[in-house]
Structure formats: C-alpha cells, structure tokens
Design a protein around this nucleic acid. Structure first.
Length: 332
RNA sequence: GCCGAGGUAGCUCAGUUGGUAGAGCACUUGACUGAAAAUCAAGGUGUCCCCAGUUCAAGUCUGGGCUUCGGCA
C-alpha cells in the first residue's frame, strides 16, 4: 500500500542563496531522522561542487541528500524529470520513517512541487527549437509570436513576444501535442502535510554574505574547478556552465575578461539572482513562515522544525520571531 | 609655481548654434509549467563643483574661486 501524500509530513526550507538553508537543514538532521531533497537546479550536476555550494560529503553523512550529483555537466534535467524524481524521493524517505526536507533556492522547482504543477507531456524537440530560432532570426520575434497566436491566443497574449525562448516552448507544445499549452497547464496540489520555513535578512546583510561566500569559493578553488571542467571538454555554452560562478570564471579562463572582473561579476550577478528568487518566495506569501536570520537564532528555528517533525505542530506566526503575522493563511 | 585637460545619476561618460538633462552598467520591481543560477520585461535616480555676471532664459557664454588628473620645472 502506497501512503497517501497527505500522510507524508514534509518540511520545506526556502529563501535566497547564501542565507543559510543548508546549514539549517543540517542542524535539523542532527536532531531527527531526516533526509534532504534538493530543490536546486545547479547542484544536480556532478563535478560542480564549489560554485554550487553543495553540502560536503561529511555533511551528507549526517543528512543524506537526494537530487544532488545526478547528471553530468553536458546533460540536462527537465522540470518534469525533476518533479518525478523529487516526488519519488519524498515518498521513499517517508517510507523509511524519516522526515523529508525539501531544501533549495530554485523557486520553479519548489513551487511546481508544492503546488502540484502538471507539466505538459511534450519533451524538448531540439530540431524543432532550432527551426524556430532560425525563423525568429529571419522574420523577427513578433512574427513568431503571431504564429503562436494562430494556435494559442491565450498563451500568445500572456507570453512577452520578445521572450523568444518561452514563445518557442509554447509553439513546441502545440507542435507535439496538437493542443495549446495554455490548456495543458494544470495545478493539482499533492496534499503533503507541509510546513515551509523561509529564511531571509536585509539586502545589505545578504549582499555582504554573498560577497563573503564568493571569496570563500575562490579560496576553496573555484577557478581550478572550472578549469578542470573546461579541460574535460565541457563547453562554456552548456546550460550547466551558465550557472553563477561558472559562466564568469569560464569567461576569464578563455581570455574574455580579467580575473578581477570575473569575480566582481559573480558577486553582481548573484545579487541580481537573489532579487529574482524573491519573486518566487515572496515575503508576503502566506504559505511561508519567514524568519529573519539576524533576529532569530538558527538553533531556535531548528527547534521549531524538530517539533514539527515529531508532532506536526507548526510554529505560530506572530510569535517565535516569525515575520508577517497572517494566521490561517494556507498554501496556494 | 607654470602649461594642458577635466569636474553632469551610485559608477563610466554623452550633451549639438544658450530653451532647467541622457546612455550603458549598478540599483529596484515584475513575468515565469519538460534549458530556470535560464529567458524576458518595467522603473526611479540628479544643488549639471561653488560664487558672481551677461541674458527673457546658462550644464552650455564671461570673470573669480575650489578641486582632480597629466606634463614641465
């Protein structure tokens, strides 16, 4: 008998990069039987350890991590594949009598999982994409969007015509399924017994943490890690190499920029990324119990999580240092 | 000390024949359903170094001052 999702107690830890999500998960892992399910689109890659700030092997002894190191840098993992693997991992961990902890900063993954997005069954068709890009090149992005309007008016209206990538995906779905993407996108909440903790702090503080972390990555050998990837023949244009730290380091190592510029750009781009992350994890979101790390000791947050693991009891907003009192707010 | 070139948005700078300013980046915000740390979009920003003068009107012209950077002593 498979357990119903509603039987599965799931803790989620979200927030911007470098705020301390992994650290919190480890603290919890030392106190209760738990395993982590990563919701990080970059930690999936093997050989990319330093720049993605993966938990160390020793830390993974304490808290086993799923969905980390699962594909090679020249491979890709799609959203649909991620969702399948994550759901399976969560079910397995629960079956072992342990607490699954969803940890990660990839908003798309977290939201898609917790909100139960049904991804249209249309795997990428590279040849089709190439043709569409050529078309966009020849006739312009507008023309492509008009083509989409002919088969899917709703999608054409909601996707910015200038965002060629998304317009092509919508066309691709119609091409492969004969149906408009706007009709295939569904949400079916999986119904986990989930509590989502969000970690945050002021931008000023976070930006300082980011700068410090980038320096630590450099000291730990980020440059050498990227050089080895290039030496192994992994091309700078691969999706995996578009990650923070890798893209800029590769540009330096191939002579496009100076080292100092590359480092500065990593810091700058990471700050930009943080702003993007807050679009997925809004401070005003009722489904997240936010804690400001400058105000609440991580041990105290971990204690709340442990209580949840044991009893299913969530810390109340408006107490325990949680931000944004909105009692009764439900996950969407 | 002398000669030259500057001082305009957080930074680098543009600003035509005088009509109270503008681009890139930064910064802030938003979208996001099989590439997502991707891709795309929107937005604000100013003692135009200071003082005086000419003028209906000065970032722009004139004089003085302060200051930065070169070169020469």
């Amino acid at each position: 008998m498979n357990p119903q999702p509603s039987d599965i107690r799931l803790l989620a830890i979200v927030g911007p990069t470098a705020v301390g999500k992994t650290d919190l998960a480890l603290r919890i892992g030392r106190q209760v039987a738990a395993e982590a399910v990563s919701a990080d689109s970059r930690q999936i890659y093997r050989l990319m350890d330093i720049g993605t700030a993966k938990a160390t092997m020793a830390e993974r002894e304490v808290l086993p991590h799923h969905l980390v190191d699962i594909v090679d840098p020249d491979d890709t993992l799609t959203l649909a594949q991620y969702l399948e693997l994550a759901k399976a991992a969560i079910a397995e961990i629960h079956a072992r009598g342990k607490l699954p902890i969803l940890v990660g900063g990839t908003g798309l993954y977290v939201r898609a999982l917790l909100e139960g997005w049904t991804v249209p069954e249309a795997p990428p068709d590279e040849a089709f994409r190439q043709r569409m890009y050529a078309l966009a090149e020849a006739e312009g992005a507008k023309a492509l969007s008009q083509r989409l309007a002919e088969v899917d008016l709703e999608a054409a209206a909601s996707i910015d015509a200038r965002n060629v990538r998304r317009v092509i995906r919508a066309l691709e779905v119609h091409h492969l399924t004969g149906q408009p993407i706007s009709k295939l996108q569904r949400k079916r909440p999986p119904g986990y017994d989930v509590w989502t903790i969000g970690l945050t702090c002021s931008r000023e503080r976070l930006y300082a943490r980011i700068d410090a972390r980038v320096e630590r990555m450099l000291a730990a050998g980020l440059e050498e890690e990227v050089r080895q990837l290039l030496d192994r023949g992994y091309d700078p244009t691969l999706p995996s190499m578009s990650g923070l730290g890798y893209r800029q380091m590769a540009a330096y190592l191939t002579g496009e920029t100076t080292q100092a510029e590359a480092v500065q750009q990593i810091k700058r781009d990471t700050r930009r990324f943080v702003r993007q992350q807050y679009n997925w994890f809004r401070l005003s979101a009722g489904w997240i119990t936010w804690y400001d790390i400058a105000e609440v000791n991580p041990e105290r947050i971990a204690a709340k999580a442990v209580t949840f693991a044991r009893t299913g009891e969530r810390a109340q907003k408006a107490q325990d240092g949680a931000l944004f009192a909105e009692p009764g707010a439900e996950p969407t």
